[in-house]
Every structure is written in structure tokens, then in C-alpha cells.
Design a protein around this nucleic acid. Structure first.
Ligand SMILES: Nc1ncnc2c1ncn2[C@@H]1O[C@H](COP(=O)(O)OP(=O)(O)OP(=O)(O)O)[C@@H](O)[C@H]1O
Length: 670
DNA sequence: TTTGAATGGGTTTTT
DNA sequence: CCCATTCAAA
């Protein structure tokens, strides 16, 4: 049930808006997402078919958040399920799975992640005899991504070599039956633009479109949105130019600033009251963002009390910082009877989570890491996934090459080169050449046998998939067929290491079982899609698990927590500096800082270390320049700079003892 | 063809 | 410090 009285007048106006374009431009915590959620529920109440409603956001996490909030409000699972709430990329996949054949790709396409992408670019470069030493494949990868995000096609590229590689790379993708991440937006966009039937289908299907975090859209996404809204113009976007933090992947704040020019007749709604942060926190945030260069003026206000001061902790080193945060967190948890899930620790880079994780684990504090690709980056996991990808789409040459000789089965580089030549000669894919290897005289008998055994196994597994056998079962068959575990023990002389890897493989199989348990229509290709689109594996079964959140600043956008720790407030981290490169966009870093501060509802603790290990060497660290923008009267010094020294271990033990005796005392009374 | 040792290069952020 | 890649020997 929508309760319009839970909204302020501006929000109410936005929720009740029905047809035509609308822009909600508003600051952090002003209830933008709340408007979207309410508007979805309101539309349903007004009789709009939920299948006609589309809401898009950027991160998987933000989509999940929206799903939960909508589900709570609609309170009808069957109706909620009919809604389309998704990221741009999964929406792209959905469109492509239906219509990609119009572009000459198979509907069973696979999705290449950046490392597959790089591998393919390297292949293309080798084919073209372009020296990888002289020309960095990563450069081309970046340039191609940029071009795709700007909506450029190979013919638009001036640089001859880049154009040639782009062209060949795109060709190669098609041959592999694969698309890359950027294609997940670019190709649907091409389809919608060039095929009226496609546009009619999708724009007709989604008659009410909402987009959260619109300031993060890039050129191609704008085009895609335009096409999707072309039939009806019912497009509602919400965003905040002060929270634009994806410039590095082509997002363009002008999309939101010029929205009313892109969509004439736009109704503009501005929200300026912040409902999230206590006064001091909002003050600090305002001070940081106000120093922004080239910023459009906007000021948030709140009715809330000042609340606690913002903690500013200075510690000796990385470990000291982690220790401080964990101690403080633990003390607050007990003293204020806070649930673990009320805490969140945020950082600029995933690597910064290590020290924290270690300590949290030691202290047995439940935590959940959002983002980070650790699991699916492990070699053994990638290998297994590569096998499944080959079973799913044998054209996928990158995956095929990855596993054709892993575990080693006597098909070395020499053989693969011959195989590749054979494939080229008969104009077939590499896998097809494997199937007909007996017609290839250049490959020796032993190798031919090995290849035949290999294809036989893959074909067998393909059969199982077609029979509709369970995914986990297929994976298990695969693991035993290739003696995967045996290979791991052979590969890692350290038994402990090998065991760990075997455990990882088990964990992957388990994730498949879980997936099959909860998916609507489980299938291998759907599973692989999910793994590609959400490699962080944030498939938190335990949705409302009580755990501390560890998350990057980017990942935290749109989320909120009662207590937030912002660690690593140092030059080099925030703003982030890369060695040898000085292209950091300071203003974007500032906005990132603003995003971090405005995640906190009641308490915010900033921290920094004086020294940090980097490349094994200790380095001195300077405070982040953004700290200087926060008036000292808002800050409460802690750690080394605080009045009280950091809590010592004895003191902490003392606190626990008294806490427990208190608890026991309460129990005895009962 | 497989293997292990040497070497060199480098830490964003997400889909 | 930790990796990925490369290179040389078995
Ligand atoms: N009218 C209101 N009355 C009370 N609480 C509100 C109101 N509007 C929003 N809130 C609360 O304020 C908080 C922030 O809302 P929301 O997440 O929708 O903001 P947002 O504008 O999307 O923030 P961000 O820009 O950070 O993503 C939420 O806890 C929400 O419940």
C-alpha cells in the first residue's frame, strides 16, 4: 500500500505523475529512490500492468535494494515478480537473448568479461602480427571500450591500427559466439535503432520506465533509453549530479543536466530535504561538496538534530586502523546494543578490505563483503567456468583454449597451432576442427586421440545439458571426468593449498545447487549469465543475515547505514593516485567522498593511517585534502590524535567482562 | 610437452 | 608484497 502522507509534497507530486517525461533532480538522501519505489507501487494500484513497468539501476546491489523495498510495499509476490527491475546490463542481455539473431550472433551467445576480452584482443593482435610489446593490448581494450560506450562504430575511428583491431575483434567475437560487457548496451541499442520491430516490441512492452542514478548514464545508455521510451515518452529519471562517480567508464553528467532538452516537456522535481543524515554529518558533506569546481549550486537541509560529531581517527598504520575500527565497532555493538548489520565499513579500493577482513574474522564478527571478484577470479573457478562455457557454447574459442589442455592432456601449443591452422583452412571454428581432427594429417596420433577424448567428453556433457540434467550434477560429472581434483593435488605440492582449491571447487558446485533451488527457470546459460553479470557472487541466501558490511565507495552509492566507517582518508586513496599517471579527476574523487559521507545516518567515523605498507615498503601518508574542507568543530579527534588513546586490549577485555556479567545478571533475574 | 624457477611489473572504481 | 608471464631445463 502506498501511503502518500509518508511523502513530502514534492515527492507526492512525483509519485502521482503519470504520463510524459519527468526528472527528479535531488541531493543525497532526499528520497529519490523512495519516490521510485512508491511510484511503482502507485502505478500498480492505479491499475497499470506490472509487466509494463521497468525500473533500471546501475549496480546489482542497488537493484536488489529496490526489489526489497518494492516487495515490501506491494506486498504481493506474484505481482512483484512481474515487474522488471534490473541493471542496464541484464536488461541488455534480456533483449539480446530475444533479438540478437538479427545482428548475426547466435542467441546462445556467451558473455566475455574483461580478461576474456583482453585474451581475444591479444589473439587478434597476434593474427595481425602486431607486436604486443610495442603496442599494449590493454590500451586497445580501453580504447575499444571507450568507443563502444560513446556509440562509435569501427568506421568512425580515425586511428588506423585501432580501427583495424576493433574491426577484427568484433569479427572474432562473432566467431566466438560472444559479446563483451559494453556490447550488452551497444547491441541492444543498435537493434532498437535499426529494427523497428524490436523497438515496437520493447518500447511497447515497457510503458512506464524509471531510471535510478541517472547521472551515471553514458552516451549509449541515453540512446537506449531514448529508444525504449520512444513510443510513449513515459520516462522518469532520478539522480544527483553531485553523485556522478562513473566518469571513468564514460558516464556523462550532462545527460541529467540536459535531460529536459533531450526530452522536451519534462516535468522537473527538486527535492532538497535530506531525511537520512544527522545534522553534523550533513554539514560535513555539504562542506566537502561545496568546494567542488564546476558544480551546479544546490544545498540540502535537514530537520534532524546535529547528532554526534564526525569521528576523525588517526592511527599509526594500516593494522592500527583496522584494529581501531574493529574495536570501536565492537564496543559500539555492545554498548549501544547495535545489530552488526547497522555497521558498514567503506573504502576506495577493494584491496583495502584485507586487513579489516582478517581482523573481523579473528574477532568472529560476522561480515559480508559486497563486490570484489575474489571468488570468480580464482584460477580453478575460472577453469571450471570455462569448461561450462564451452559446453554451453563450443564456439567460444577463448574458453576452449583455456581448458583444452587443462588439466594437461598432451595438447601443447604446437598442437593447438596446428589445430588452429586446420580450422582456418576448413573455415570452421576451433571446436569444429577438434570434432574432425581425424581429417587433419599434421597432428600426431597421440594428440589426435587426446583431442577425440576431449570432444567426446564435451559432447557427452552437452547431451546431459540437453536432457535437462541438473547443473550441479553436470559439474560433478565434469570434475570427475577430467580428474580435476587429482590435477589440483598434482599442481600444488602444498597439500593445504590444494585442499583449499578443492574446497573452492566444492563451493562453486554448492552455489549451483543453491542457484537451482531458487531460480525460476534454472539453466546452464542462465547460470553463466549470472556469473558474468554478478561475479561478486552476492547471492546472499541469508538475505537478512546480521553482518557488518564491507563495501567500496562506488558500491555503497544509494545505500545507507546507521554507522559508517570511512577508512583510508589519505591522499593517494581519496583522491586516488595511480603511479606514473596523473590523470585523477579530483572533482570525481570529491564527489565520491561526498557519497561516502552521506551514507551515514547517525554516526560517521573517518580514519586514516600515518604510514602504510605499499609494495612491501613503508610509506608516509598525508591526510586527504577533503578532510581540510570539513570544519574542525564538526570533528571529534580519535585514535592517536584523540584525547583518549585507542582502547587497549586490557580495557576491552574489562568492558567485555562487565558486559557479560551484566547479561548474566539479567538472565539470573528472569 | 610439461615443469618450475626467474623475472619484471603494479595495485581503482563496475557491469 | 603478490601476481602473471616468460623462459629454460627435464
Ligand atoms: N518524506 C520522507 N519522510 C521520511 N523519511 C523519508 C522521506 N523521504 C525519504 N525518507 C528516508 O530517507 C532516506 C533516504 O531516502 P532514499 O534512499 O530514497 O534517498 P535517495 O535520494 O535515493 O538517496 P541517494 O541519493 O543517497 O541514493 C531513507 O531512509 C528514506 O526512507
Amino acid at each position: 500500500m502506498v501511503r502518500l502522507m509518508d511523502l513530502n509534497p514534492e515527492q507526492r507530486e512525483a509519485v502521482k505523475h503519470r504520463d510524459g517525461p519527468m526528472l527528479i533532480l535531488a541531493g543525497a538522501g532526499s528520497g529519490k529512490t523512495r519516490v521510485i519505489v512508491n511510484r511503482i507501487a502507485y502505478l500498480i494500484e492505479q491499475g497499470v500492468n506490472p509487466e509494463h513497468i521497468l525500473a533500471v539501476s546501475f549496480t546489482n546491489r542497488a537493484v536488489r535494494e529496490m526489489e526489497e523495498r518494492v516487495a515490501d510495499m506491494v506486498n504481493n509476490r506474484k505481482v512483484a515478480k512481474k515487474l522488471t527491475l534490473s541493471t542496464f546490463h541484464s536488461l541488455g542481455v534480456r533483449i539480446l537473448r530475444t533479438d540478437i539473431d538479427l545482428l548475426n550472433y547466435p542467441r546462445q551467445f556467451t558473455i566475455y568479461d574483461p580478461s576474456d576480452q583482453l585474451a581475444l584482443i591479444k589473439r587478434v593482435m597476434r593474427e595481425k602480427r602486431i607486436d604486443e610489446k610495442r603496442f599494449d593490448p590493454k590500451y586497445f581494450q580501453a580504447e575499444i571500450a571507450k568507443a563502444k560506450n560513446e556509440g562509435q562504430e569501427p568506421k568512425d575511428i580515425r586511428d588506423i591500427m585501432l580501427r583495424e583491431i576493433f574491426l577484427a575483434y568484433d569479427d572474432a567475437l562473432r566467431t566466438c559466439g560472444a559479446v563483451d560487457f559494453d556490447d550488452l548496451i551497444r547491441l541492444p541499442c543498435l537493434l532498437l535503432k535499426n529494427h523497428d520491430s524490436v523497438r515496437q516490441r520493447w518500447s511497447g512492452r515497457f510503458r512506464q520506465i524509471m531510471i535510478d542514478e541517472y547521472q551515471d548514464t553514458n552516451g549509449v545508455q541515453l540512446q537506449m533509453v531514448r529508444e525504449l521510451a520512444s513510443i510513449h515518452g513515459n520516462l522518469c529519471v532520478v539522480g544527483d549530479d553531485d553523485q556522478s562517480i562513473y566518469g571513468w567508464r564514460g558516464s556523462d553528467v550532462e545527460n541529467i543536466r540536459q535531460f529536459d532538452k533531450h526530452f522536451p516537456g519534462t516535468r522537473v522535481v527538486k527535492l532538497t530535504q535530506n531525511y537520512r543524515c544527522s545534522g553534523n554529518i550533513l554539514d560535513a558533506a555539504n562542506k566537502v561538496i561545496e568546494q567542488g569546481v564546476g558544480r551546479y549550486h544546490k544545498r540540502l537541509w535537514t530537520e534532524q538534530d546535529n547528532g554526534a560529531l564526525v569521528g576523525m581517527a588517526v592511527l599509526a598504520d594500516e593494522e592500527g586502523e583496522a584494529r581501531f575500527v574493529v574495536d570501536h565497532l565492537q564496543t559500539t555493538h555492545f554498548e549501544e546494543k547495535r545489530k552488526w548489520s547497522e555497521f558498514s565499513i567503506m573504502y576506495r579500493t577493494n584491496a583495502q578490505s584485507r586487513a579489516l577482513e582478517e581482523l573481523l574474522r579473528n574477532e568472529r564478527i560476522p561480515y559480508k563483503m559486497i563486490g570484489g571478484t575474489k571468488f570468480f577470479d580464482r584460477k580453478e573457478i575460472r577453469d571450471l567456468i570455462a569448461y561450462l562455457k564451452v559446453v554451453n557454447q563450443p564456439k567460444d574459442e577463448i574458453s576452449l583454449r583455456r581448458i583444452i589442455n587443462y588439466p594437461p592432456r598432451g595438447i601443447g601449443t604446437a598442437t593447438i597451432d596446428k589445430l588452429s591452422a586446420f580450422a582456418k583452412q576448413r573455415r570452421s571454428t576451433l571446436y569444429d576442427a577438434c570434432l574432425h581432427i581425424d581429417d587433419c594429417s599434421t597432428v600426431g596420433k597421440a594428440q589426435r586421440n587426446a583431442i577425440n577424448d576431449f570432444t567426446e567428453m564435451i559432447e557427452n556433457l552437452k547431451g546431459k545439458v540437453e536432457e535437462g540434467r541438473s547443473l550441479a550434477l553436470i559439474a560433478e560429472m565434469l570434475i570427475s571426468a577430467v580428474k580435476f581434483q587429482h590435477a589440483l593435488f598434482k599442481e600444488y605440492s602444498e597439500v593445504k593449498e590444494a585442499k583449499k582449491r578443492v574446497d573452492n571447487v566444492d563451493a562453486l558446485v554448492n552455489s549451483m545447487i543453491q542457484y537451482e533451488g531458487k531460480a525460476d527457470k534454472p539453466s546452464l546459460s542462465d547460470y553463466l549469465d549470472r556469473v558474468s553479470l554478478e561475479p561478486s557472487g552476492d547471492n546472499s541466501e541469508e538475505e537478512d543475515e546480521d553482518a557488518v558490511m564491507l563495501i567500496t565507495l562506488h558500491g555503497a552509492k544509494g545505500l545507507e547505514y546507521p554507522i559508517v566507517y570511512l577508512v583510508g582518508m589519505e591522499e593517494g586513496f581519496l583522491p586516488y593516485f595511480r603511479i606514473y599517471e596523473s590523470d585523477t579527476d579530483i572533482e570525481e574523487e570529491r564527489r565520491l567522498c561526498y557519497v561516502g559521507i552521506t551514507r551515514a545516518k547517525q554516526k560517521l567515523i573517518l580514519s586514516r593511517a600515518l604510514q602504510r605498507r605499499r609494495f612491501g615498503r613503508m610509506e608516509d601518508r598525508e591526510p586527504s585534502r577533503f578532510l581540510a574542507d570539513i570544519p574542525p568543530k564538526l570533528l571529534h579527534p580519535m585514535g592517536i590524535g584523540g584525547k583518549k588513546p585507542a582502547v587497549t586490549e586490557e580495557e576491552r577485555d574489562e568492558k567485555f567482562k562487565s558486559f557479560f556479567s551484566e547479561v548474566f545478571g539479567m538472565l539470573e533475574k528472569d
